[in-house]
C-alpha cells in the first residue's frame, strides 16, 4: 500500500513538473531540449514520408497523430511532447467518434491547442 502511494505521488509530481516546464526556447538547457525535439521530429518526418504514405488507412483525426506529435515537439518540451503524442495514440480509437466533433471532411477534430492552451482564456469574445 505504501509503495502504491509513493508511486502515485512520484508520478503525479513528475507530471506537474513536466507541465510547469517552459517551451524549449526558454529552457536553461535549451540546446539539449532542442536536440531531442529535432531528433524526434526527424524520426516523425521519416515515418510520415517513408511509412505513412504507403498505408491505405488514413488517421481518422485531424491533425493526424504524426502531425500532432510533430507540432507537440515543435511547441513544447520533449518530455511533455512525448506524453502528449503517446496519449494521442491511445485516444485514436474506435470510441473517438463519440468524443470529438467532425469537420466537413468527416475527420475528427482534435487540435494540440486544446492540450497546451486549455487553461488559457480565449482572447476574443466572438
Amino acid at each position: 500500500m505504501r509503495l502504491i502511494i509513493i508511486i502515485t505521488i512520484t508520478c503525479s509530481s513528475i507530471v506537474f513538473a513536466v507541465d510547469s516546464l517552459e517551451t524549449p526556447d526558454t529552457l536553461v538547457s535549451a540546446r539539449k531540449a532542442n536536440t531531442l525535439s529535432v531528433c524526434a521530429s526527424i524520426l516523425l518526418k521519416g515515418y510520415k514520408k517513408g511509412i505513412s504514405n504507403l498505408e491505405t488507412h488514413e488517421c481518422p483525426m485531424t491533425p493526424s497523430c504524426s502531425e500532432f506529435a510533430l507540432e507537440a515537439f515543435r511547441r513544447t518540451n520533449p518530455l511533455k511532447a512525448l506524453f502528449l503524442a503517446v496519449d494521442r495514440l491511445t485516444r485514436d480509437n474506435s470510441f473517438a467518434k463519440y468524443y470529438y466533433p467532425k469537420n466537413e471532411k468527416g475527420k475528427l477534430v482534435d487540435p494540440l491547442d486544446r492540450y497546451i492552451k486549455c487553461d488559457k482564456k480565449p482572447r476574443r469574445y466572438y
Binding site: C11, S12, I14, V15, F16, V18, D19, K80, L82, F83, L84, A85, V86, D87, L89, T90, R91, R114, Y115, C118, D119
Partner: peptide, 20 residues
C-alpha cells in the same frame, strides 16, 4: 513506462480540457 506516463499526463490535461 512511456504509455504509463502518457496516460497520467493525458488524464491531467483531459481534466483541464473537461473544465474548459
Amino acid at each position: 513506462g512511456i504509455f504509463y506516463g502518457g496516460n497520467i499526463y493525458g488524464s491531467y490535461v483531459g481534466a483541464r480540457w473537461f473544465n474548459e
